[in-house]
Amino acid sequence: MQKTSPILNLPNILTMIRVLAIPVLVLVFYLPFKWSDMCAAALFLAAGVTDWLDGYLARRLNQTSPLGAFLDPVADKLIVGVALVMLVQIHATAWLAVPAMVIVSREIAVSALREWMAELGQRGRVAVSQLGKIKTVTQMTAITLLLAQKPGFDAFGDIVMTPWLWLSYGLLYLATALTLWSMGSYLRAAAPELLKSGD
């Protein structure tokens, strides 16, 4: 049997599909139809499932590759960042803008930390932890729920908080707390290198 190409293997194809789904997600989210919210949420949820699936298949089929190792986290951060930008624009409230800012800032900081540690040959110290995986699941669930229903507004322009929104915001704040906790864990792991004297 011919060996699968390290580029055109199934895990990498799934990751590329996740990246290509981003403009589709944006388009669907802004369509003026009642079903667009649920469709956007379904697309985002499918992206989250493929995030787990491509990693599982890469390990199961022994099809890991440098392209996959690079593209997989990039795809995750792109789709989460784009979804949060859309949600901040629709909700237009500090209650959503602040956790979105924390989540995006954390992703940038941790990515930079991992790149720097990799240059030192210490990438393993800041590898994805179990806590990071729990954070990702909570974050994906919160964003999916927020995408599934655009908020309503009262006569004063304030968001009407329904039980659905309370649950969505609650999960987003839990994801934000886990985001900060996991970032703290990575910083502690990298502290010996970060605090070395420059002499």
Rank of each mutant, 00 (worst) to 15 (best):
S5V: 08
P6H: 04
P6M: 01
I7A: 10
I7G: 02
N9T: 13
L10K: 12
L14M: 09
T15E: 04
A21V: 14
A21I: 12
P23Q: 13
L25N: 03
V26C: 11
L27C: 11
L31S: 13
S36R: 07
M38C: 07
C39T: 14
F44T: 02
G48W: 04
G48V: 04
V49H: 08
D51N: 03
L53C: 08
A58T: 03
R60S: 13
T64A: 14
S65N: 10
P66A: 00
A69Q: 14
D72Q: 02
L78S: 06
I79R: 01
V80P: 01
V82Y: 02
A83C: 12
M86C: 15
I90G: 00
H91E: 13
H91C: 11
A94K: 00
L96V: 12
A97C: 12
A100K: 05
M101W: 10
V102K: 10
I103P: 02
V104C: 15
S105Q: 08
S111H: 00
W116T: 14
A118I: 00
A118V: 00
E119L: 13
E119A: 15
V126W: 03
Q130I: 02
L131R: 04
G132R: 00
K135E: 11
I143H: 07
I143K: 00
L145P: 04
L146G: 10
A148H: 04
F153G: 06
D154S: 02
D154L: 03
D154A: 02
A155P: 02
V160H: 10
W164G: 02
L165V: 11
W166V: 10
W166S: 07
L167A: 15
S168M: 12
Y169I: 11
A175R: 06
A175W: 12
A177F: 15
L178V: 09
W181A: 05
S185C: 09
S185D: 13
L187E: 01
A189G: 09
A189M: 07
A190K: 13
A191M: 12
L194P: 06
L195E: 09
L195N: 09
K196F: 00
S197C: 02
